[in-house]
Every structure is written in C-alpha cells, then in structure tokens.
C-alpha cells in the first residue's frame, strides 16, 4: 500500500510542523539546563587538561570502583525486591477492595509521594538514631545494648525501600486496575482455587506492572544520593555518594565526571534492555 500523496497529506505535514512548535519551550529548557551541563560532564571526563581517557582507565582498573559499582547494584536489587514484596499485596488489596479503602490508601501513598525524600530521610534519622524510639523499643524488649542502626547499610536500605514504595505501588496499581476481574472469575468457574486463579491468571497479567515498577525503582536506586549519604555507612558508599566525595573532598572533577558518565551508561543500558523487551512508552503505565 502506497500512502496517497495529496492535499490532505501535505496539510497534516504542515500541522505536524506547527505541533512541533508546542515542544519548543520544553526543548529549549532541556537543551540549556540538561544537554549543555551533560555535555560539560562528558567533556570534563575526557580532559586533563588535554584529551585523555585516564579517568576511565583508572576507574575500570581499580577494584575499589568495581566494588562500589557492584555494591550499588546489590543495594538497588535488594531495595527493588523488598519494595516489590511490600507493594504487591498493597496494590492488590487496593484494586480488589476498591471503595473507601482504595481512596484512603491511595491518598496516603500520594501524600508520601509528595513529601520530599530529604524530609523522609531525616525522619528515619530520628527513628533510627542512637537515642531514637526504635533502639529504645529494642532495649525495652531486652536486646541491650541494641545494635547500632544509623549509618549502616541496613538503615539506608530500609529507608530507600520506604521512599520508593509509592513508585512501586503506583506502577503496579496502574496495571492491576486494568485487569478485568472476570478473568479471575472465569478461572474460578473453570476449577481454579483462589490461589491458582491468582497464580495462573492474575499474577501473569500483572507482570507488566512488576517489570515497570522494578525497572523504575532499580534505576532510581542506582543514582540515589541523599539517603545513602545521610543514613548509610560511610565505608560502603553507593556510586552517587562516591561522585559527591570525589568532588567535595578531592576536587577530582575529571574522575567524578567519568564516574557519572559510567553511571549514566549503566542506566541507559538498563533502559535499552527494558525498551528492547517491553517498550519505554509503557514505563508510566
């Protein structure tokens, strides 16, 4: 089929051009405040002061950096798994119960969504602190002295799970609410127990939500800065924290830029994999 070339096609072409004008403000903004700084980062990463790849070679040849990168992946993986385990039942309940329960739960999730990461991270500092309520409770139950909670990998992982649950819940919810409950009923009428109907029908149909939520949370975790820095162990930095240290403490702009580019490439690689198997346009439900 050859598309007809005529006045209609030409007309829609010119209105396409006009539609592009609508994107101009956003594109200009992105160019000035995103592409230019990003270009600068890439530029810094290969200059010292002349062109060099030594920032990359030193990163790739130093096992310390590999450990940080691997640790970041591990933390992101653990956070993603726990966020999924806690969010899935919640999203499922919201979809199945509906009504007031769903409204209230979605409101609570939206409220934590709108509360800044920094505020919630400070809240965890209070809760987990040496004189905080959690240690007091543990000691009241006889675990004395209670273990150090703050500034450990445990505390930063716990807080990140909490911070990212809203993203996971909403990613799951947006897919689950489109699943026709007649599928579950049909499975039940065909002889499936409630568990089988969930496991064989609802769970596979909610898989896109699981993939979306996990991709989203994993990628956000990879670049997470404030929470690991404020709550985590200084000896087990994540990669964003490392970039901060490279700049703030060592003024190593070249190395920091190279690390940033590597983080960016890793993130883009995950997006590419997601796009290859799912399609980026489906990421937000």
């Amino acid at each position: 089929m050859v598309p007809p070339v005529g006045s209609a096609a030409i007309k829609s072409g010119s209105s396409d051009a006009k539609a592009w004008l609508l994107l101009l403000p956003a594109l200009a903004f992105l160019a000035v405040f995103f592409l230019v700084p990003l270009g600068q980062v890439v530029f810094f990463s290969v200059m010292d002061p002349g062109f060099t790849l030594k920032h990359y070679t030193s990163f790739l040849s130093d096992s310390f950096y590999w450990r940080v990168l691997w640790g970041t992946f591990q933390t992101a993986g653990i956070v993603t798994i726990f966020a999924l385990l806690m969010s899935y039942p919640l999203a499922y309940m919201i979809v199945r119960m509906g009504g007031h329960f769903a409204t209230v739960m979605l409101l609570i999730i939206a409220m934590s969504f709108w509360t800044s990461f920094l505020v919630r991270t400070f809240a965890w500092m209070v809760i987990l602190g040496n004189n905080g309520p959690l240690r007091a409770i543990l000691e009241a139950f006889g675990w004395s002295p209670a273990p150090q909670l703050l500034f450990t990998r445990f505390s930063s992982t716990l807080a990140m799970v909490h911070l990212l649950i809203p993203f996971m819940v909403l990613a799951l919810y947006s897919v689950m609410k489109k699943i026709d409950m007649n599928f579950v009923r049909a499975a039940r009428s065909l002889g499936a127990t409630p568990f089988q109907a969930f496991h064989r029908v609802f769970l596979p149909l909610s898989a896109p939500g699981i993939v979306n939520g996990c991709t989203l949370v994993f990628i956000m975790c990879l670049g997470f800065y404030v929470t690991p820095v404020l709550l985590g162990s200084p000896r087990e930095q994540m990669i964003a924290g490392l970039i901060g240290t490279q700049i703030e403490e060592f003024l190593e702009f070249g190395e920091a830029s190279a690390t940033s580019v590597i983080l960016l490439l890793v993130t883009l690689a995950i997006f590419a994999i997601y796009n290859r198997f799912v399609g980026l346009d489906k990421l937000w439900g």
Binding site: F183, R185, A186, L190
Partner: peptide, 17 residues
Amino acid sequence: PPHQRNIGMVFQNYALF
C-alpha cells in the same frame, strides 16, 4: 465455592486469558 461446582460459564466479554 465456585471452583468445586463443576459449572461452565461463558462471560459477556468472553474473558479468554
């Protein structure tokens, strides 16, 4: 419960998995 009734059902929108 429905899964023990041995009743076949065709839904309005078919509900094919």
